[in-house]
Amino acid sequence: MINTGVNKELNMSAVIEKNSGKKRFNLSPYLYIGPHLILFAIFFLFPTLYGIYISFTNWDLIGDPEFVGLANYKEILFNHESTFYDQLHNGLGNTFKFVLFTVPACIIVPLLLAAGLNTRPKGLKFFQALFYMPTLFSVSAVMIVFSMLFSVSFGPINHFLNVETNWLSTQPYAWITLVVVTIWWSIGANMIIYQAALNGISRDLYEAASIDGASSIQKFFRITLPSIRAQILYTVVITTIAQFNVYGQPLMLTKGGPTSSTSVLLMYIQQNAFGSGISIAGIGSAMAVILGLCIMVVSAIQFFFLRQRD
């Protein structure tokens, strides 16, 4: 269906092109890459550069941005009196905590699942489909489900554990819940990547190791892990970037609480720029630039360390 629509349009252009003669300035490559380049420039490149620029202004999203130099950065990084200082430090701190808590689990759990599936158990397809499925669901749908599951008074978790734990609004339970939910929701893709990688390791390696008397654990660390290092690197970097952009889980599950202990930076950025009241887009942008820098630096460090072992 989709293809025929495209074909028709292009065939028409083909006719037009033919009629317009052969050798001339060759415009046609730009007809192919042009549509994307224009969209890219308007909706990615320009706003990204402009986002950096307005972090140096006092923009309110409506009027003209007025250049204020490093004032926003000074305010959020060093002015202890400012609420924005608190927001940045609390939000960035919580974002880093979230990354630290979830990334190792989002690597190890799917790796274990993939290793389990690699023994080709009965029901392989079913297991695979089940563990992968939550990645297809939106964060808001999943958070509704888990907010009910973990509810103090009518949640089945408390009922079956026979406790009265306030999972969503006391610590450390709020963090535990966020981490568990994130693992449940997002390990599917990594698992599939590891499955494919494990599949590609030659069985001979393991058999030779067995003959040499290697234990399963030795085999895992000496054969399995080195063989899938490229995929580990890829998933660590991608997963870390994804977790730095955490927003929906704390927003809908813990509402950033208790007492802002799970408020992440993206929540503050959203509030400052688009929340009720006058927009403080300049400050929001400065926060976004700092978050972006953190993501880039951390990815670079990971890349450096995981690549070096050659």
Partner: peptide, 17 residues
């Protein structure tokens, strides 16, 4: 190369556009 650039920075100007 731009793929490495974090998308969060363009959020606010994109809204303005």
């Amino acid at each position: 190369a731009t793929m490495m650039f974090p998308a969060v920075v363009n959020l606010i100007p994109l809204y303005k556009i």
